[in-house]
Amino acid sequence: MPEMNIIQAINDCLRVEMQRDSRVVVLGEDVGNFGGVFRATVGLQQEFGPDRCMDTPLAENGIVGAAIGMALYGLRPVAEIQFADYVYPAFDQIVNELAKMRYRSGGEYSAPVVIRMPAGGGVRGGHYHSQSPEAVFIHTPGLQVVYPSTPADTKGLLASAIRGEDPVIFLEPKRLYRTAKGEVPAGDYTVPIGQARVVRRAAARSERSLTILAWGGMVPTALEAADKAAGMGYDIELIDLRTLLPFDIETIVQSVHKTGRAVIVHEAPRTCGFGAELAASIQERALLHLEAPILRVTGFDTPFPYTLESEYLPDRDRILDALEKVTTG
């Protein structure tokens, strides 16, 4: 099995999907001749031609709006928005159009568009290159939202997104693009949307057992904290949600039933972040299994900063602090 980083996994996935289905087209800014600013689409225009991998003018609303039209006509567009922070000119097209095509037509039309966007901080990008906007898309009925953290999951989930019947917001943790490496199955490979991955298992309920929920760029950070905590006597189950909408409630609740505690880690701001929804959903189903309040370790309710980026982003020690809080008391 070849080892890849996330960029290579995306490129490999797009190539495989474009080979299997002539309806799959790639469009976006700089994605063609140049291969994308992160190089995720390198070689695709050369291999499939300028009608399958298209450089667009700089207009995110135009990219998403045209992709919707293409999908209405029967194509399977994969649009790249260069940074998730740049998506807002396309916000109306995504929220009011893309997400609603199936519903507003009673299923006569659908728009199975995949919108890929590099998201999250940790690359010294300031707030125009670092935000993690998953919550706004999760809050829009009609969109599936995926946020993987490993090369294999990225390939498998992107393939599922492209083959699926619904629009997918595909957030890519840009800080892990080249640092996360792993074996990726060659050729045809899918990971089902809607299933979480248990990264690390807890043995049983104890005074130091707990579940950490994380996704995207926070998964390696959470794992680092979990590994450290294990040495301190904690028994931690780490769940990588992978798909945020629809999230895998069964895996989450099962885990909380076992461990009795939950800490949610995300880099987006705390208030109305997706952690709030998870906390509410857990307490609806597992309140009497909980030994402690559910805690969130998140970005702050500030714009994403440049110089103080590492103070803003949840790190190992902030997560360890939360683990201590939910196990003492």
């Binding site: 039209g69 293409m70 194509l75």
Partner: peptide, 20 residues
Amino acid sequence: SCVASQIPHAVGIAWAAKIR
């Protein structure tokens, strides 16, 4: 209702037809 949103859709449909 959002005014003009349908214009890129028309373009995308036409563009897709040209690609096909």
